[in-house]
Write a protein that binds this DNA or RNA. Structure first.
Lengths: 227, 227
DNA sequence: AGGACAATGCCAGTTACTGGCACATCAGTT
DNA sequence: AACTGATGTGCCAGTAACTGGCATTGTCCT
């Protein structure tokens, strides 16, 4: 339940505590009673802050539910900003993303797993989560444009690379949730998440040339046409 | 402003007319006064239906604004369902998407352009549009799973292919809007859209191996590492 | 013409979210 | 310790998207 850093000014510590109380309480209530079913009124009552204050910390009900995910994206963008770019851009994004996951605090893992479990059974949160990933992709491209001096509008490839990185994330994360459920506790931790996302990144080249498997009754396939 | 098909039963024609009135009025009002600024009350008043009826036609304010886009996705999924799969999946998706754009009705083009212009200056609509594209991607993968007898959870590549197709769409459409604005009227039509999306599809392979351009002051780049 | 069914309108309610202002709390200064 | 400016919080009243229920109207079929 990590206490705020002692060295920070009192005011700052207090803010962090409020924020944390809100997202923890939210996660607890949402998991127990459902996201849609829990009203914000109930939440702010439980967390003992006014509704007005809630909205000073989170811009929406969805944001507080997926706070852990938001923190990851913040870290990811920050990591990318301070990273030297060598080799293929896709490889850079891959490393940056994996490192970001690795470097999240100890407590983050637990919260993120809960968050994902919640999203898995709440369609509006699934939507919101995917939307967030697209927003991150936009930021990503902006960072790269800045770093490389390329205009993403001139060179389509830049945007595409951004898309692919987040595509890999979405696929990896999706399979991670599923795997976690299937193999019970112990699995489904951070290491497994990293493995899944890396796996998705690595599958990218092969997916481009993927063809329909030959099933009985099908006519003979033509020569493979250009992608 | 295309009148509903004479052969359809009266009831059906009436429904189509209401639907059309709603989306046309919405587009007109939103373009003139802004999406956020126009309340649904104003819209249903203008279209002369009750608010309750509005929600029987469109599940949200966003949906009516982006109705034209929704129609495209509907057509796309339908096209893919009735399509034989030969060659690489990505090529199939590419053709299916381009054909769908080509086959949309005459009137669609005008509405779609307006729709996109609106989305370009309304952040919540941009978000919603991208979210829609992700939803389509989900459907797409389901269709392919069905057709090919592959489980997307077993083979990551399937989901990735779906992601790439819609990535290409997003990039292509984005550049299309920009290009349309830049070169004035005449350009920015359907043919141009198709060209842009095709261009994005074609840039996919090259984007995987894209590296940072060499800028003065940079150290010598290493050998390209594996993606 | 008349019954079945589909679409619409009306009304009253819920809930996420916002602006404005008064009040409280904290940091730095004297 | 009191003073001050800044920063954070609570309260209140409001808006606007969306929903359920039921009576009413319109369309189809025989």
């Amino acid at each position: 339940m990590s206490t705020p850093d002692r060295s920070l000014p009192l005011r700052e510590r207090k803010k962090q505590r409020v924020r944390r109380t809100l997202s923890d309480t939210a996660l607890r209530l949402f998991l127990r009673e459902g996201f849609q079913e829990t009203t914000l009124e109930r939440l702010v009552d439980e967390a003992e802050v006014s509704m007005r204050t809630f909205f000073r910390y989170f811009p929406s009900k969805e944001h507080v539910a997926l706070a852990a995910e938001g923190e990851l994206w913040e870290a990811f963008v920050a990591d990318l900003c301070g990273r030297e770019v060598h080799g293929t851009l896709l490889a850079v994004l891959r490393e940056s993303m994996l490192d970001s996951i690795r470097d999240m605090g100890e407590d983050w893992e637990r919260r993120f797993i809960a968050t994902r479990g919640l999203a898995a059974r709440t369609s509006v949160l699934r939507d919101f989560s995917e939307l967030s990933s697209i927003r991150v992709q936009r930021q990503l491209v902006e960072v790269l444009e800045e770093k490389l001096g390329i205009d993403g509008r001139e060179d389509v490839r830049l945007r595409l690379v951004g898309e692919f990185a987040l595509s890999a994330w979405r696929c990896g994360a999706k399979n991670w949730v599923r795997g976690g459920r299937q193999y019970g506790k112990g699995r489904g931790g951070r290491a497994e998440l990293i493995r899944r996302v890396a796996e998705a990144f690595d599958a990218i080249p092969a997916s481009l040339t993927m063809t329909a498997p030959h099933r009985e009754g099908d006519p003979e396939p033509d020569v493979i046409t250009s992608a």
